[in-house]
Simulated scan of single mutants.
Amino acid sequence: MTPATSLFSPVEADLQILADNLKQLVGNGHPILCAAAEHLFGAGGKRIRPAIVLLISRATMLEQDITPRHRRLAEITEMIHTASLVHDDVVDESEMRRGVPTVHSLFGNRIAILAGDFLFAQSSWYLANLDNLDVVKLLSEVIMDLASGEIQQGLNRFDTNISIDTYLKKTYYKTASLIANSSKAAGLLSNVSQETADHLYSYGRHLGLAFQIVDDILDFTSSTDTLGKPAGSDLKSGNLTAPVLFALEEKPYLEALIDREFAQKGDLEQAISLIHDSQGIQRSRELAEHHAKVAVEHLAHLPSSESWQTLMKIADYVLSRLY
Rank of each mutant, 00 (worst) to 15 (best):
S222N: 11
E141L: 10
E261G: 02
L227I: 08
L257W: 06
S94P: 06
G232T: 05
G208C: 11
G154E: 07
I48Q: 00
A83H: 08
Y167D: 01
E289H: 13
L22R: 05
V91A: 09
L322E: 06
E286G: 02
P3E: 11
Y253K: 14
A4L: 14
P243L: 12
D234T: 11
A36P: 06
I151G: 01
H301S: 15
L25N: 13
S57T: 02
I164N: 02
I76K: 01
R98T: 08
E261K: 15
E141P: 01
T221A: 12
K251V: 04
M79K: 00
G280M: 03
L33C: 07
L55M: 08
I66S: 06
T224K: 10
H301C: 15
S9Q: 13
L54G: 05
I272H: 02
K46W: 03
V135Y: 13
R98H: 10
S237Q: 14
S304V: 05
L209R: 01
N191V: 01
K184S: 14
T310M: 07
I76C: 03
S223Y: 06
L127A: 05
H70R: 04
R69L: 14
A185Y: 01
L155A: 13
S307F: 05
Q153K: 09
L133F: 14
E297H: 13
S148H: 03
D145M: 03
N132S: 10
S148T: 10
F158G: 08
G238I: 04
E75R: 01
I80M: 05
T175L: 06
S140Y: 08
L155M: 14
T310L: 02
E95P: 01
D92K: 10
Q152E: 14
Y317H: 15
G154Q: 14
S177L: 12
A35N: 15
I48Y: 04
I314E: 04
A288C: 12
D20N: 12
I143R: 00
S57C: 05
I143M: 15
P243C: 10
A13P: 01
S190V: 05
P10W: 08
H104K: 07
H39F: 08
S182D: 07
D259K: 15
T310S: 06
S94R: 09
I179H: 00
N109D: 13
I217L: 10
L155C: 11
Y173M: 10
M96F: 10
A83L: 07
K265W: 00
I143L: 05
H298K: 13
A83F: 10
S6Y: 01
R110L: 07
H276Y: 12
N28Q: 14
A256G: 05
I213E: 02
